[in-house]
Simulated assay, not measured.
Amino acid sequence: MIPLEDRLRLKAREEGFADLRIADPGAAAQAGGRLQEFLSFGREGDMAWLKETAARRADPRVLWPGARSAILLAMSYAPEIDPLERLARKDTGVISVYALGRDYHDVIKGKLKQLAQWLARETQEEVKVFVDTAPLMEKPLAEAAGLGWQGKHTNLVSRSLGSWFFLGAILSAAELARDPRESDHCGTCRACLDICPTKAFPAPYQLDARRCISYLTIEYKGHIADEFREAIGNRIYGCDDCLAACPWNKFAGAAHEAKLKARDDLIAPKLADLARLDDQAFRQLFTASPVKRSGRDRFIRNVLIAIGNSGDAGLAPEAERLLGDESALVRAMAVWALSRLLDAEDFATLRDKHAQQETDDAVAAEWQKA
């Protein structure tokens, strides 16, 4: 009879997963110490939930004492486009590859539930499903399971999938055969570190989220600091640079078709069109997309940074219109964008018209700096 673990892998393939590996739930215990070090430097930024859930993240058995096996799965999203080529098209916005299609949480969770239900029937044991939304440290567990290794960019790398894949996890009360741990294959390569526009890696295998463009454009709720704005370029949601630089990506599309397809309208959307989105239009455009997580105001903040970096004075009217936006986040970046696109005389005219009426200190400071 075919072993249960092999049948589980076959079922996973049927659901669209590219790989499945199994680890002991306690196999990544050392990750708790690394998380504490990360938190001790304050590198989590505004992601307070990381600190609040640190104790539970340290060991899945704290989250669920009944867990006997951790099943880690990978689903490829290897892009059919060159993610970095889009950075040269300054009149368009760049959305991270992972967010170009349907929200992966919804897609993967549905497939994981199907697989977990099958496993529960086969073993008569309880299961729990996780997709990046619970305090479970999927990457260290996936490394322990042999799915890949945490590269110098801190993301998981696979010899067969490169850096382009999502992770999902199933915890089971059943005892399943373990797979061997994967070793580090980064060698002397530092391509992912050297390409980072904001120098977000203090050292190999360390990330300062406060400097990461993905954090700044997705998670960060405040006004993005001056030092990062030019480096952000036209990245309006996330950043693919460190992932795209990984040499192991040459294997990512060889044997694994990407299961989550990009929407054509999100590959290179025009900044002018995006700048006109109100809340309703934003929600409509990004229905079933992970981009909706940022909310309209943060997204338009990012769009205005891209407009300011475009060098295209033809986009100035879009920024000028947003000087009266309800959101201070938006107004502040409209000021910054216009300061970069207009000559001194035209900008001074706008400042005389708007600056005295501004009630928000951060926006007023942008007028003053400009």
Results as ranks from 00 to 15, higher is better:
residue 168 G to Q: 13
residue 341 L to D: 05
residue 120 A to I: 02
residue 110 G to R: 14
residue 27 A to C: 10
residue 11 K to G: 00
residue 365 A to F: 09
residue 337 A to L: 06
residue 264 D to L: 14
residue 224 I to D: 02
residue 275 A to D: 04
residue 292 K to Q: 12
residue 251 F to C: 00
residue 243 L to A: 12
residue 117 Q to M: 01
residue 228 F to R: 04
residue 205 Y to P: 01
residue 163 S to I: 01
residue 370 A to R: 04
residue 362 A to P: 00
residue 182 E to C: 13
residue 254 A to S: 08
residue 55 A to C: 00
residue 172 S to L: 08
residue 152 K to E: 07
residue 238 G to A: 11
residue 301 R to Q: 10
residue 316 A to V: 03
residue 368 Q to N: 12
residue 69 S to N: 04
residue 224 I to K: 01
residue 51 K to D: 07
residue 271 L to E: 11
residue 27 A to T: 06
residue 121 R to D: 14
residue 330 V to F: 05
residue 194 D to I: 06
residue 17 F to S: 02
residue 105 H to P: 11
residue 302 N to M: 12
residue 203 A to H: 07
residue 148 G to C: 09
residue 141 L to T: 01
residue 332 A to F: 02
residue 299 F to P: 01
residue 168 G to E: 10
residue 130 F to D: 03
residue 123 T to R: 03
residue 80 E to Y: 03
residue 21 R to P: 02
residue 15 E to A: 15
residue 305 I to E: 06
residue 129 V to G: 04
residue 17 F to M: 07
residue 322 L to F: 11
residue 11 K to L: 11
residue 67 A to K: 01
residue 19 D to N: 07
residue 245 A to P: 00
residue 184 D to F: 11
residue 273 D to C: 00
residue 166 F to Y: 15
residue 327 S to D: 04
residue 111 K to V: 07
residue 246 C to P: 08
residue 8 L to Y: 05
residue 296 R to D: 04
residue 238 G to S: 09
residue 247 P to A: 09
residue 245 A to R: 02
residue 116 A to L: 08
residue 2 I to L: 10
residue 38 F to V: 06
residue 302 N to Y: 12
residue 180 P to C: 12
residue 240 D to F: 03
residue 86 R to D: 03
residue 309 N to M: 09
residue 116 A to I: 04
residue 45 G to M: 09
residue 198 T to C: 09
residue 202 P to H: 10
